[in-house]
């Protein structure tokens, strides 16, 4: 390929950066980059899960007692929101792959909608906790849980907080992709940003799939 691919082809798609030979190479690079980044994210969250294992091992009774104060129905509702948003995200990628602009827009909007709904539910959960006096760490001020509950809630706020931060970043990325889709930037020939933001969004879902049972359903 090389020189042939580089010089012989006069038409040069606008999305192709100069240092790649072909769209295929560029798309494969972007996707590999995203997966490598996902591996990084998994190790990042591994620290939080390891902290959870350690503290749960040290304070089993406290964890059982404290998790009762999390609202399972809220958690379950958020799980449903995230899974559904994952579905609409996958459908948006599929729409981009099949150059179906309209469907891509609708599905991206739905995804953003579910992501916002997730944030709203999270907001109610947090504000209810704060109302009771359940603050992170040394600001904890709720006396009705036996044992060492500030450790559990400290961890709860950090884990769900880091996840929520990823959701917020995801919403930003989804908005960007949505606006680009509206300009007609994506088609079957070039959809790699949609695909990679999709991968990121599924990762956010993936982490929640583990957070939900560990925090809300530990009985």
């Amino acid at each position: 390929m090389s020189q042939v691919a580089d010089h012989a082809h006069t038409e040069h798609p606008p999305h192709l950066h100069h240092h790649f030979h072909s769209s295929a190479q560029q798309a494969a690079s972007a996707k590999l980059g995203m997966w490598v980044f996902i591996a990084q994210e998994i190790l990042f969250f591994s620290g939080l899960f390891m902290a959870y294992i350690a503290l749960r091992y040290l304070y089993p009774k406290t964890f059982l007692a404290a998790h009762e104060h999390l609202d399972v129905s809220m958690g379950a509702l958020n799980t449903v929101f995230l899974i559904t948003s994952s579905l609409t995200m996958a459908l948006a990628v599929r729409a981009a792959q099949t150059s179906n602009k309209k469907w891509a827009e609708i599905n991206l909007l739905l995804t953003i909608g579910f992501a916002l709904a997730f944030c709203v539910v999270k907001y109610f959960e947090y504000s209810h906790k704060f109302h009771l006096g359940i603050f992170p760490g040394k600001y904890y001020a709720y006396t009705h849980i036996p044992g060492n509950p500030e450790v559990f809630f400290g961890l709860y706020f950090v884990m769900t907080g880091m996840h929520a931060l990823h959701v917020v970043v995801g919403i930003g990325l989804l908005l960007w992709i949505y606006l680009k889709t509206r300009t007609g930037a994506f088609s079957a020939a070039y959809y790699s940003p949609v695909e990679n933001v999709g991968l990121y969004w599924h990762l956010v879902d993936l982490i929640w799939i583990f957070l939900f049972p560990l925090l809300y359903l530990v009985k």
């Binding site: 691919a5 798609p13 072909s22 769209s23 459908l91 599929r94």
Partner: peptide, 23 residues
């Protein structure tokens, strides 16, 4: 995968049934 030109590498499109089934 360099053999193709600048243009399209065919995307691998899954049928809708798979997505909804997984959901």
């Amino acid at each position: 995968h360099h053999k193709d030109s600048h243009g399209s590498h065919e995307p691998h499109v899954l049928p809708l049934s798979i997505y909804f089934g997984v959901f």
